[in-house]
């Protein structure tokens, strides 16, 4: 009997951030140099969905608001800067609110949440007014619609304006899915129909079908996780849907790896892992080669350091199953 082969992972398990994604090297250089026009050119050279994703990651950099405020004051006409600052305000809003249930959030935190979201929204309204075809602003407004508790028809209106500019966008569709979940303002039927519709409409090799994995993970979360969650995810029809979506998406021959693809792979990986489908999970482990995105992993684990153990477990289980 031979040993379980050791898989070498060159990097410590961590989540993708703006600071370390290899593809963003030139974007990082521009930000570090204060070359905002260079940043804009760099973002515009990306596909629309990747640009929006890069901006959302940049908006998560702690303290980034300081330089953005200065740049926005100097260049109010820049859609990219205004949108980045607005996205940052939204991040700050959710930090103030925390991710607890509404009933558990103190009134002062809620007031701060709304105040920051309103700042964000007012900037985005102006961006969309002056640059109606700037997709990242519309994507950010889908998320804001949820926090501001705007009606479903308004959320859909924003999502539609965005989809006209950038269809099959995993970030924007993910924001829309959140609104449609029972834990927010929708129903399970709404959420399921939406996710399946996105996946069916997406071209082959697109990251968009991963929305189906996100949907099933949200249902797993709703069951409370653990045994009930595993029972749900390991249902034959759920596994079949996950496999079909992955096959059309990041496992398809037409797929080209991108930062957004890490999110897609992570969603499939996590779903298969929680379902106990180690063979399926292993495919995504190898494809990811150590990369991971915070969402949706934060639903299941507290620290990215746990990913090393999880990967090892998946690969060893896969090897064991093969014997």
């Amino acid at each position: 009997m031979s040993r379980v082969p050791e898989i070498e992972h060159p990097r410590e398990p961590s989540y993708d951030t703006f600071a370390d994604i290899p593809d963003y090297a030139s974007l990082r250089a521009a930000v570090d140099a204060g070359d905002w026009r260079g940043l804009e050119v760099g973002l515009d050279s990306l596909p629309a969905d990747e640009a929006t994703y890069a901006m959302t990651l940049l908006a998560e950099v702690a303290g980034i608001e300081a330089v953005l405020e200065i740049e926005h004051a100097a260049h109010a006409e820049s859609a990219h800067i205004a949108t980045l600052l607005a996205m940052r305000r939204t991040v700050q809003a959710w930090e103030a609110r925390t991710r607890r249930q509404s009933a558990d959030v103190e009134p002062e935190r809620f007031a701060a949440f709304l105040s920051l979201l309103r700042e964000s929204e007012i900037m985005l309204i102006a961006v969309c007014g002056a640059h109606p075809n700037f997709a990242p602003a519309w994507a950010a407004r889908i998320t804001n619609a949820r926090g501001l508790q705007l009606g479903a028809s308004e959320m859909r209106r924003r999502a539609r304006r965005h989809a006209d500019l950038s269809p099959h966008d995993l970030t924007a569709q993910g924001a829309q899915l959140q609104y449609l979940l029972p834990k927010w303002f929708g129903t399970d039927d709404d959420a399921a129909a939406f996710a399946r519709g996105c996946a069916a409409a997406a071209p082959e090799g697109s990251t968009a079908p991963a929305i189906v994995a996100v949907y099933h993970l949200e249902r797993w979360l709703e069951t409370g996780g653990r045994a009930a969650g595993t029972a749900y995810l390991s249902r034959p029809e759920v596994l079949a849907e996950l496999r079909a979506s992955a096959a059309r998406s990041v496992l398809h021959v037409a797929y080209r790896p991108t930062p957004l693809g890490v999110v897609a792979h992570s969603a499939f990986l996590m779903a298969f892992w929680l379902a106990g489908a180690h063979a399926d999970a292993a495919v995504h482990v190898r494809a990811l080669d150590g990369r991971a995105s915070e969402f949706p992993w934060r639903y299941a684990i507290d620290e990215p350091s746990e990913l090393g153990r999880i990967r090892a477990e998946i690969l060893s289980q896969e090897t064991a199953a093969r014997r």
Binding site: I125, C128, G129, L150, G151, A152, S153, E154, M155, R156, R157, R158
Partner: peptide, 10 residues
Amino acid sequence: QAAVIGGLVD
């Protein structure tokens, strides 16, 4: 209704 309000704003 919500879409009419938002649409008018935009």
